[in-house]
Nucleic acid binder design. Sequence first.
DNA 1: CGTGAGTGCTTCGAATTCGAAGCATGATGA
DNA 2: TCATCATGCTTCGAATTCGAAGCACTCACG
Lengths: 168, 168
Amino acid sequence: MPKPTPASDALDSVQLGAYFALMDVAGLLRHAVEQQLRDEGDLSYVQFQLLARLALDSPTGSERMTDLADGVVYSRSGLTYQAGLLEKAGLVVRAPSPDDERSVTVTVTDAGRAVIARVIPGHVEVLRQQLFAPLSGAKVQELGDLLAPVRDHMRSAPPRSAGARRKR
Amino acid sequence: MPKPTPASDALDSVQLGAYFALMDVAGLLRHAVEQQLRDEGDLSYVQFQLLARLALDSPTGSERMTDLADGVVYSRSGLTYQAGLLEKAGLVVRAPSPDDERSVTVTVTDAGRAVIARVIPGHVEVLRQQLFAPLSGAKVQELGDLLAPVRDHMRSAPPRSAGARRKR
DNA sequence: CGTGAGTGCTTCGAATTCGAAGCATGATGA
DNA sequence: TCATCATGCTTCGAATTCGAAGCACTCACG
């Protein structure tokens, strides 16, 4: 007689619950955030991520296209498109990298920083109401501690869609 | 001298960490899952969600379009499109609801159930490797417990994009 | 030097997504 | 009963997304 549940066949209900809760929360949160960004800053979520990364995370305000794409979990062609929009709007500037003629360096402009600054308060407000309201401070901490290792694990594991070009 | 951080202005680093970790993990996981579904069953993530909901969660194998859209966090027009594809592929059937002539009832076919059954093992495998590998059983439980209330909170709070039609 | 493989970005076409507007059916209340 | 509002879904056009293919540049090695 086989064991009740051969650990490699089905997920138990706890796992399923965590999986669906995770995906649902992320989906709902993204919708909420997207709407606020659209209303207050005419930005898509991706554009916000890009600007925020450049304006807040990067000391120089610049990054290579590829690094941006990887950081934001996004296809390269999609990034080209969005960077084009941001450039047309005057929020970033693109220039060929000095040291490597192939790569393009994207840099936030002052206008870009201004947009981020304008949008942030409302963004934070949405997060508070939607994500943090039902969680105590300690639970927020727990959540971060739980998910950070998962992210690191996933980023190191290959299954990235835009991964290394396949050897032929 | 002002307080270190006026609680209504910025998020602390713990909150930011949790927020970004959540969104990153969900994004990465979705990519991984999407690829597996495409490879093994020619399904998009949304199509999988729809089929799974009908085949596994619904006693009758049927649901109204609107309930499906709400359950899956999806626009109504998008659902119409995807339901059309699934119907063309023979995985679901659409029929006007008996009691309310306006609404359409979607029902999985045997072929639909077969596809789900075929895809599930690989799906589970991806989840194991990507999401659950770095988490102990207890932590999976914690994660679910943390996120379930958040989901409920968000689902009840209005900011759904396809929310109630605005009063004029 | 040259050639070939590897990397970085863009262009292209196809598929998906959304919201607004439209159409049809149901519910409400004067 | 009939007008009016509400609800359920679809159609439409515009915007976004992706992967494949292409172009340009860099690096390694003979």
